[in-house]
């Protein structure tokens, strides 16, 4: 392409002046420009925090849950040994109390956030989303509180 075409490339439309000092062109703001009305933070970073939480809790859960499976289902007779006495023996140690408490909280929050994503993806009507997420959060809070209460108030001499 030669430099000859430069002036010809400006079409007749550009050549006509539609606006002048008395009739200025309308102002079009650049997209996503920060204005006086824009809040300081337009998005917040909850979704980024949730994304990071899934990865961090995921790594910890791999250790906690696979260790839990090994202990409960594989070692020392597998599932056959589990009973009240086995639970009492395990929760006599603060180590396993902390293990189970951490596993409960991380797994519940990891699962709840996962299901929140699934609801966001598939439930299209606003009312459906509201109810499904309300149910999800209620069940999650209830289960976390119940599990925490059970670990902290466990009584080996209940009978």
């Amino acid at each position: 392409m030669s430099t000859e075409t430069t002036s010809a490339a400006v079409g007749p439309v550009e050549g006509v002046t539609l606006y002048d000092a008395g009739n200025p062109a309308p102002l079009i703001e650049p997209p996503r420009k920060r204005t006086g009305k824009t809040p300081r933070s337009t998005r917040g970073n909850f979704e980024m925090a949730a994304w990071l939480f899934m990865r961090l809790s995921g790594v910890v859960l791999v250790v906690l849950v696979l260790g839990h499976l090994l202990l409960q289902l594989v070692l020392d007779g597998g599932v056959s040994k589990i009973g009240f006495a086995f639970v009492a023996g395990r929760w006599a140690s603060p180590f396993w109390q902390v293990w189970d408490l951490l596993m409960l909280w991380l797994a519940m929050l990891h699962g709840a956030n996962g299901l929140r994503t699934v609801v966001n993806d598939y439930a299209e009507r606003p009312n459906t989303r509201l109810w499904l997420k309300g149910l999800l959060y209620t069940a999650t809070v209830f289960t976390i509180l119940l599990g925490t209460l059970v670990i902290f108030t466990f009584d080996p001499n209940i009978r």
């Binding site: 639970v87 409960l104 289960t143 119940l146 599990g147 209460l149 059970v150 009584d155 209940i158």
Partner: peptide
């Protein structure tokens, strides 16, 4: 969690 809660 529900079945484990039965220890209480």
């Amino acid at each position: 969690v529900l079945d484990t809660a039965l220890v209480r």
